[in-house]
């Protein structure tokens, strides 16, 4: 199946056509200025200009849950660990909290679960009967420094195991050496290997360091057909930050304005609190609008964040501050 044929086949959770990509067009990003100081200023006021309180806050936190890629990416992951994670994805909030919020009938789940490739079969099994997609980090995650044919094979294998979404890592060297053609070819090949599965391109923004690199890499990944662009692996020194995210969503907006194609955004790593969940949602709403608050265009790559959200929501329901040990583990 070619990339073009895939375009009009939305997956289970998506209600818009996939980004088919375009030929590499460096004019869309080369020389594009990103002023770090200004990005930091804007990022700093995102959370001071906007605030959600009471029921609105509860709703926004529920929305965040819908967008969470509940993740475990550890060397000691096991089938049991993945089962527990999937149980939490199916039932992210205790029934008493769902009742209290009046959303028991809503069928709230997380946006996806995200695991290593060999854990995919366990996740698929654990999520059978739900619409929760299984995402997996293929392509030699996290460094990605293995031969391309093996990485492509890893994608195909993982998709065969039932993964709906593949979070790929890019070769940072291509960005650091500004070899945009190599980066484009790599992501395009991975997109093809994904087939029906959605491709989420992890740009390793902590490694590529400058916001100009972040903008350029975002644009190349989208041109090569990424369905999502994602900040980081969670393994870098610096992971998702608001200035980096701001730069990526602006690239995404510019790509959309130029081509008409919609691409999703996934910040990942380092976001631990309910407050973070709100901050990133403000960013999406302010810069891109409500469509990018839906799980088909927005995901939060997180693990411990859900626990904090659950505590906040219980407080909302009961008026008492909550304790983590009274909530089920992820």
């Amino acid at each position: 199946m070619t990339t073009a044929e895939l375009t009009d086949q939305p997956n289970a959770l998506s209600n818009h056509p996939r980004n088919p990509g375009i030929p590499l067009d460096p004019a869309m990003f080369e020389g594009r200025a990103v002023n770090r100081s200004a990005a930091e200023r804007r990022a700093a006021t995102l959370t001071t200009r906007r605030s959600v309180k009471k029921t609105h806050q509860a709703a926004w936190l529920v929305n965040a849950i819908r967008c969470i890629d509940l993740t475990t990416l550890a060397g000691d992951d096991t089938e049991g660990r993945v089962q527990r994670l999937c149980a939490k994805a199916r039932q992210p909030l205790a029934p008493r909290i769902l009742d209290g919020l009046g959303i028991a009938e809503m069928g709230l789940t997380t946006g996806a679960v995200c695991v290593y490739p060999t854990m995919v079969p366990h996740a698929v099994k654990a999520l059978r009967g739900t619409n929760i997609p299984v995402a997996s980090v293929a392509t030699g995650f996290p460094a990605g420094l293995m031969p391309l044919n093996l990485r492509l094979e890893e994608i195909r294998w993982t998709v065969d195991q039932g993964a709906d979404e593949i979070d790929i890592v890019i070769t940072r060297e291509h960005v650091l050496k500004r070899d945009w053609a190599a980066l484009y070819d790599e992501v395009a090949a991975m997109r093809e290997a994904c087939g029906q599965a959605h491709l989420k391109a992890i740009l390793a923004t902590g490694d590529i360091a400058t916001l100009r690199n972040v903008y350029a890499a975002s644009m190349v990944a989208m041109q090569a057909g990424a369905d999502f662009i994602k900040t980081s692996t969670g393994k870098e020194g610096v992971n998702a930050t608001l200035p980096v995210s701001l730069t990526m969503v602006r690239a995404l907006r510019d790509y959309g304005d130029a081509t008409g194609h919609r691409v999703g955004f996934k910040p990942a790593g380092g976001m631990k609190s309910a407050k973070d969940a709100l901050a990133w949602q403000y960013l999406m709403k302010e810069e891109l609008g409500n469509d990018w608050l839906q799980p088909d265009l927005f995901r939060l790559g997180a693990s411990s964040m859900l626990g904090d959200i659950e505590r906040q929501l219980e407080h909302h329901v009961t008026g008492r501050y909550a304790a983590a040990h009274r909530h089920s583990l992820a």
């Binding site: 906007r50 605030s51 959600v52 309180k53 009471k54 029921t55 609105h56 509860a58 709703a59 926004w60 529920v62 929305n63 919020l101 009046g102 959303i103 809503m106 949602q281 709403k285 409500n290 608050l293």
Partner: peptide, 18 residues
């Protein structure tokens, strides 16, 4: 009275009075 599902449909900020 806004219910959670209503708000999820609009994703309005609502009021945050000081």
């Amino acid at each position: 009275m806004n219910t959670i599902t209503d708000i999820l449909a609009t994703m309005d900020y609502g009021k945050a009075p000081e």
